[in-house]
């Protein structure tokens, strides 16, 4: 039994090392005093200096985060509306039709999304740049939000809604006081996922970005083909640290919430502890 468990641990360690090897590789070389990711020439912070004085890359970084923030925010609003609409549909058939339509972008390959959006913007005579990238990111984020919010709505206690109606809540009060608080974890999850998808997107952006505007992914791609300077490694290291802090903060907050919840319902089956 315990021996078996040791094998399990070895396997998990192997997977985690595999997952983090490239990332640590990037970070280690960000401190290399040489200028390539090969051969170690000694410790240096010079690539961090380069990074902070490279206004072009800093501007691209700001752009990338701006696009991610704006697109996930707008997608959260539109997507939540869509989820509420789909949830309120009476017929199962129309519900399924809307859901399928919703999921089209979610399952489409990025190349298709990128290419077809490129055609769309060109046909409409829309100039490629910040706005076209923003619109594209909003577009591919909306279905994620819908998919995160819908299950929350479906799990929502129907007697809660009935009780609110019974107590005389109008539509707006119902939405703001009853429904939104219940589904807010779903909206937050949707926002969060949309944000990471946007930060991470390369293919769609690559198609609709035009010449003047660029995001981090596209910049790295175009530089990678000529050989990238190690300041990109420095940037990766910083971004990894930020992500790591965010994950830790999220974990602490969520486990605290679970614990305080548990205190109240000690006798509830431990099996109810879900995600």
């Amino acid at each position: 039994m315990s021996k078996k468990f040791r094998w399990a641990n070895i396997y998990l360690w192997f997977v985690f090392i595999l997952l983090y090897l490239p990332i640590f590789f990037l970070i280690v070389y960000s401190f290399n005093s040489g200028s390539v990711m090969q051969g170690w020439s000694g410790f240096s912070l010079k690539h961090y200096n380069e990074l902070f004085s490279d206004t072009r890359i800093l501007e691209i970084l700001v752009n990338t985060f701006l696009i991610a923030l704006l697109s996930s925010l707008l997608a959260s609003i539109i997507g939540t509306g869509g989820a509420l609409y789909i949830y309120n549909l009476k017929h199962t058939l129309s519900k399924n039709v809307f859901l399928s339509l919703n999921n089209i972008l979610l399952v489409s390959p990025d190349v298709i999304i990128g290419a077809s959006f490129l055609i769309l913007f060109t046909v409409m005579g829309f100039a490629l740049g910040f706005t076209s990238v923003l619109l594209s990111h909003i577009a591919f984020s909306i279905p994620i939000v819908v998919l995160m919010v819908l299950p929350r709505l479906q799990e929502m206690n129907q007697s809660l809604v009935a009780a609110a109606k019974d107590l005389g809540a109008n539509n707006w009060q119902m939405l703001s006081r009853v429904i939104l608080p219940v589904i807010s974890p779903g909206i937050l999850a949707g926002f969060f996922m949309a944000f990471t998808y946007s930060l991470d997107d390369f293919a769609v952006t690559f198609f609709v970005t035009g010449n003047g505007f660029t995001t981090l992914s596209v910049e790295v791609y175009s530089r990678a083909r000529q050989g990238v300077s190690l300041e990109i490694n420095a940037l990766s290291a910083l971004m990894f640290m930020v992500s790591l802090l965010l994950v830790l903060a999220y974990y602490v907050i969520s486990t605290r919430a679970v614990r305080s919840k548990k205190r109240g319902t000690r006798l509830v089956l431990p099996a109810t502890e879900g995600l």
């Binding site: 490239p22 990332i23 991470d200 981090l216 992914s217 790295v220 990678a224 990766s236």
Partner: peptide, 11 residues
């Protein structure tokens, strides 16, 4: 997955 895809590929 939060580390940019391109950066990981580049590694």
């Amino acid at each position: 997955t939060w580390i940019n895809l391109l950066l990981k590929t580049y590694a």
